[in-house]
Design a protein around this nucleic acid. Structure first.
Lengths: 151, 151
DNA sequence: TCATATCTTATTAAAACAGTCGGGATTTGT
DNA sequence: ACAAATCCCGACTGTTTTAATAAGATATGA
């Protein structure tokens, strides 16, 4: 159904949460889960993958938590989605990595459609970084203030 | 995982098959299933939805089968996908029809990302018709002949 | 009337999804 | 040294979706 699972959605929200607290030292999983309304144990599983891929770093022990693995401007939404949901591939024969082609792939008209879909999704997800999201959030926030002011 | 199910994939192939036999009278489900290597019974379920939505018309009885509901140029891949897989919606809160929004939707930064993904998918799927596919197939076929000739 | 088709409903095995649970390892403040 | 906070890891579970399969009813041309 071309649906994203909760893995991708929760993951992006958690990463955005970390971006909003960048420079404040490690953020605990518990606080992210509370702010985002996500099960803590479940989020733990997801962030485990993000840590292994280097998108976040962990600090163990009391007062520990997670910090972004690199600057918000260098973390694309596509990076997060690929870690949590696997390579972008509306159908397996056009997967970004090791596509399982059938014999007719070379001359398959249907296949070219899925390639276009894949590329258009990847383009969108790779054009947005956590930095972009922070900027957008600031814009929305100031618009909101204006709106509240004039009411 | 942003995956299309077999419904969408088989459906597009079946519709393309019908487009290739346009003007030849009704095509039986059995022959489509055989050419496309799809379970006949399963395809039956899928085409039922296509018929109800008017994308195909059925002719019952012996020598019966299915024909396209309108010209290949007026059937977009997006039409087929929407019938078989439902409205395009990478997440429910940005569904093409009756999105289930949460309270924060108005100021949700994550949401705008999924809207962009939805629109880019819809743009691709609505820019391709069965007619386009027929043209592409002809091009591929002539390229193939050339290739075979020079070997 | 009979072979050929489409239609309709029900059932099912396997996989994916979305968690839940229990315990371990590591660091910090006291 | 010890308790609290926190990350780390593997196993388990209920629900939903997927991808069929099966069986029979209905319609029609020859």
């Amino acid at each position: 159904m071309l649906k994203l699972s909760t893995k991708g959605r929760y993951g992006v929200r958690a990463m955005f949460d970390l971006a909003q607290h960048v420079g404040e030292g490690p953020t605990s999983l518990k606080s992210i889960a509370e702010r985002q309304g996500i099960s803590e144990h479940y989020l733990e599983q997801l962030i485990s993958g993000l840590r292994k891929s280097g998108l976040v770093k962990s600090v163990r022990g009391a007062q520990g938590g997670y910090i972004l693995g690199r600057e918000p401007g260098k973390i694309k939404i596509g990076d997060i989605i690929r870690v949590l949901e696997g390579p972008i591939a509306p159908v397996d024969c056009v997967s970004e990595e090791d596509p399982e082609c059938c014999a007719k792939a070379e001359f398959c008209v249907t296949r070219t459609i899925w390639e276009k879909v894949r590329d258009s999704i990847a383009d969108v997800l790779d054009s947005i970084t956590l930095e972009t999201m922070l900027e957008d959030a600031n814009k929305l926030e100031s618009e909101r203030s204006l709106y509240m002011y004039y009411i």
